[in-house]
Simulated scan of single mutants.
Amino acid sequence: MDIRQLKYFVQIAESGNFSRAAEVLRIAQPSLSQQMKNLEEELGVGLLLRHARGVTLTELGQQLYDHARRILQEVDRVKDVVRSSSLNPSGRVSVGLPTSACRGLGLPLIQALAERQPNISLHVVEAMTGYLDDFLQHGRLDVALLYDHKAFEHVAWTEMMVEELMLFVPPGHPLAEQGSVSFREMFDWPIVLPGAPNVMRTVIEQFAARHDVVPAAMACDSLPTIARLVRSGRALGVMPHFAFMDEMERGEMTAVPILDPTPSWRLSVVVSQRSMNPRGSEAVAKVMADVIAAMVDSGTWRARLRTEKARGEARLPAR
């Protein structure tokens, strides 16, 4: 049994008949049939049930199909590892961006990578930070931008900046006229936050616990829905300035500073040390860090950058 036979077998199983599989594989159907006969004889079991409409898998055939697919996927990933060892990083890199940052960061990141790393195929995943953290830990992401990320094994991170959170209100709201709001006072109004275990809610609840405040707030994990709630005046939203730049430019929202205290969080570019494309992942992480730093330096992204030295150092968490 070899990789070629497994590839043939998987294609037959997915095509449902030999003739269609032979067309996809670009080999003669008699040759394909002989390969499957040889495989069944070698294993000593029947893998395919042949009938007028084509073929279906036997129970043992289904088991082989499941294993064969995983083997072929691993072979493809090994190819990416080898390619990533070349001078020019290439291959697929999956990147996770928080919902609050994706709208503003996604396009500049894609444009910068197209210019600086054209051989990398980027897969962008948008989700709330808590989900991205889990995706990274379970190997579904190579790189992610995370807020106050969890420390765990097999990741390196570069802490980029500190971002203050603000209260978003509709135009003409009394707090917009007031110009600022205390952390305690903002809970006199209806507030909407992402639900637990989202980092945003955790940060707010930790601030509240330290200052003897009860943070009553509805839960919503959809940024567009949070935006609609704020625009309608049904609830006020807590987000970083960067999250609702488009709405503010259109005059649909006003950002009100939160004082005494001002909640904030740290943003880090996090890289999985288990990535099957380490060189590609490192290249993407560097481009992301550079794009973020440029946006902060230009004032597009309101945040406080770490020092140049801190930005350039990736640290492994303690085990």
Rank of each mutant, 00 (worst) to 15 (best):
M186N: 14
A114G: 06
A289Q: 08
V143T: 00
A314W: 12
R279V: 02
M239C: 07
E42V: 09
H67L: 13
M245T: 08
E252H: 05
K150N: 12
F9R: 04
G195L: 14
M239K: 10
S19F: 01
G46I: 00
H51C: 12
G54H: 07
A217K: 02
A310Q: 14
R279L: 08
L49A: 12
V45F: 03
L122V: 12
R53A: 09
V45C: 01
M276L: 10
L32W: 05
D188R: 09
G195M: 15
P190T: 02
V287G: 11
T307S: 15
L105D: 10
N17L: 09
G91K: 00
W189V: 00
E41L: 05
S272I: 06
L141S: 05
A144L: 02
N88T: 13
R77S: 10
D80K: 00
W301S: 02
A68T: 11
V214M: 14
A156N: 15
V24K: 12
M1I: 07
V95C: 03
L223H: 12
D2Q: 12
D142N: 11
W189D: 08
L107A: 14
V82M: 08
P98G: 00
W157V: 15
G233V: 00
T56C: 07
M248Y: 01
P278N: 00
R4Y: 11
V143D: 02
M276F: 10
G237F: 03
S100K: 10
R250E: 14
A144H: 05
V238A: 07
D66R: 11
V192Y: 04
L6G: 14
L145R: 05
H211R: 08
L25I: 09
W301N: 02
D134F: 08
W189Q: 13
G237Q: 03
E164N: 12
D246R: 09
L49C: 08
R319C: 11
E205H: 07
G106H: 07
